[in-house]
């Protein structure tokens, strides 16, 4: 049942992404930037998806500490890994855009720096997990670290904001923005597609985590005999 649901969702995500790419390819180039501008349709939704994943990781970590139910722990790893991948996609697409428009791959601007620090924090979460053998300890420590990381991210953003910012300001869903309404819709649809993709990847990772725990259980039984 779950497999079929996954295949169905995968097909839906593929079709939606294909449709979005066709729509985006059809759009005219932006007046000042030309075709490279279209990277925003992946750059921004990837960042939003990563933010949703980080919030989900926080919620699941708190739930784990409260209930000690390992399903929450498995889900927390799954969403963190997927979120990290989307944040990486965000950083890479931003870097490519920066090379074309600014002429540089990287600048120590507030958003770039805080996104990178955020990436490093959650990469630390995964490294911490790899370094702990005992499952209960691994889940507890990882949950505590995830909560610390989530508290830290807004402070990091606030602190770096005091340096002069080079990143363009928000252009859509804001009163001062210059983003046409139908382009906003394209962007939102692509977010839906990426969220769907993220959910599928998360579900696959969750399945792997559950299998891993079953293997651990069977191995422990075998050792006990």
């Amino acid at each position: 049942m779950r497999e079929k649901l996954l295949y169905g969702a995968g097909l839906a995500a593929f079709l939606l992404l294909a449709r979005n790419i066709l729509v985006i390819a059809d759009l005219p180039g932006e007046a000042a930037q030309g075709a490279i501008f279209k990277i925003i349709f992946f750059h921004v939704p990837a960042a939003w998806t990563a933010m949703v994943a980080a919030t989900a990781a926080l919620t699941l970590s708190i739930l784990f500490l409260k209930t000690k139910d390992f399903r929450y722990d498995a889900a927390a790893v799954a969403v963190t890994e997927v979120g990290l991948a989307f944040l990486a996609a965000n950083l890479v697409t931003g870097s490519i855009w920066g090379r074309v428009i600014w002429g540089i791959w990287w600048t120590w601007d507030v958003r770039l720096t805080s996104a990178l620090v955020c990436w490093l924090l959650y990469a630390g979460y995964l490294m911490l997990r790899h370094a702990i053998e005992e499952p209960t300890q691994r889940a507890t420590f990882a949950a505590v670290f995830s909560i610390f990381a989530f508290i830290d991210v807004p402070i990091v953003i606030f602190s770096i904001r005091w340096f002069r910012t080079q990143h363009p300001g928000p252009v859509f869903l804001s009163s001062t923005g210059s983003f046409p309404h139908d382009w906003t819709m394209v962007l939102l649809w692509n977010w839906v597609a990426l969220m769907l993709l993220a959910s599928i990847l998360g579900a696959i990772r969750l399945g792997q985590e559950e299998t891993q725990r079953e293997i651990d259980y069977v191995r422990r039984m075998a050792h006990a005999l």
Binding site: M127, F158, S159
Partner: peptide
């Protein structure tokens, strides 16, 4: 250090 330095950034 891997875990503390990014957290200590602010």
């Amino acid at each position: 250090p891997m875990l503390t330095y990014p957290m200590l950034l602010p």
